[in-house]
């Protein structure tokens, strides 16, 4: 059984890492990062069978692809806290000569990252490719991917969404961060996503939904998703989150999608997030 309290403690530290990385870099994307912190913490600390002794091929281990690469400060924190690299390296986020690029990249050899992302819509296809290779290799581990909701406006997502069910890519669990916001405003104002559960279902996916900011529900839903693998269908989890979750003044607005908090705002934010594992 998962220790929910322990996961929540880790997520709190991850949220501190996000706020501090973005503050020190004076730029970055705190909103979506904070919203997905519970999900990614659960994935790396409870759900996935993965090896921090990083191997690019990911053979015989579960692998994760971040398609919405702009929430990199979240991923970097989770990777560091999982042991992929030193936590102190988080201080280099977005700095010259850092492995922690503004958007995730393999180019500098950062352990844990298997493909660059940032230009949206591409990660789902890459995840499918790895899932296909696992099938050829007789490797029964799983492939996870996370996309944004605004990202679903990219056409390539739907090319991939059509491919995976047709080809029974059932070792794949995709999560959509359904926070309803994107840079220019609410999804519904920019370009509405319509009935998302119905759309994914119509494309042939097994559709689950969860509250991505309730650790108990996140862990339970991810376990349920794992049970549904190997049954001929890819799985999508439509995850309702609140952008900026955990920092009151960043919540329920798109305004903190890509803005760094100043010193005062950072102090206010950190006061709301318990330091549980020691800051970097």
């Amino acid at each position: 059984m998962a220790d929910i309290q322990q996961l929540e403690k880790i997520a709190s530290q991850v949220r501190r890492d996000i706020v501090r990385q973005v503050h020190f870099a004076t730029c970055g994307h705190p909103g979506g990062s904070l919203g997905c912190a519970d999900f990614l913490t659960a994935l790396y600390f409870e759900i996935m069978n993965h090896n921090p002794e990083f191997n690019m091929s990911g053979k015989n281990e579960d692998v994760f692809f971040l398609s919405n690469g702009h929430i990199s400060p979240l991923w970097y924190s989770v990777l560091a806290r999982s042991g992929y690299f030193e936590v102190s390296e988080l201080a280099t986020f977005r700095k010259l000569n850092s492995r922690l690029q503004g958007h995730p990249a393999t180019h500098e050899g950062l352990p844990g990252v298997r493909v660059a992302s940032g230009s949206l819509g591409q990660g789902l296809s890459v995840a499918i490719g790895v899932a296909l290779a696992k099938k050829i290799n007789g490797d029964d581990s799983l492939v996870f991917a996370l996309t944004g909701d605004g990202e679903l406006q990219e056409g390539q997502i739907w090319e991939a969404a059509m491919y995976a069910p047709h080809n029974k890519v059932d070792n794949l669990i995709v999560t959509v961060d359904w926070n309803g916001q994107q840079i220019d405003g609410a999804n519904d104002d920019v370009l509405t996503l319509g009935d998302l559960p119905l759309k994914w279902k119509a494309f042939g996916w097994e559709v689950l939904q969860m509250n991505g900011n309730d650790m108990t529900e996140v862990v339970a839903t991810l376990h349920e998703a794992k049970k549904k693998t190997g049954q001929g269908k890819p799985i999508v989890i439509l995850m309702k989150t609140v952008m900026g979750f955990g920092v009151d003044f960043m919540m329920h607005t798109h305004k903190w999608h890509g803005v760094a908090p100043n010193a005062e705002q950072t102090e206010t934010a950190l006061a709301q997030l318990e330091e549980t594992l020691g800051d970097f």
Partner: peptide, 25 residues
């Protein structure tokens, strides 16, 4: 077993190829 018909979806094909290469293909 080593051949993939992607359909008329070239962007997806390039991404899937990147994934297959990641896994050593």
């Amino acid at each position: 077993e080593r051949f993939f018909q992607i359909g008329i979806a070239e962007a997806n094909m390039m991404g899937i190829a990147a994934g297959l290469a990641t896994a050593g293909k």
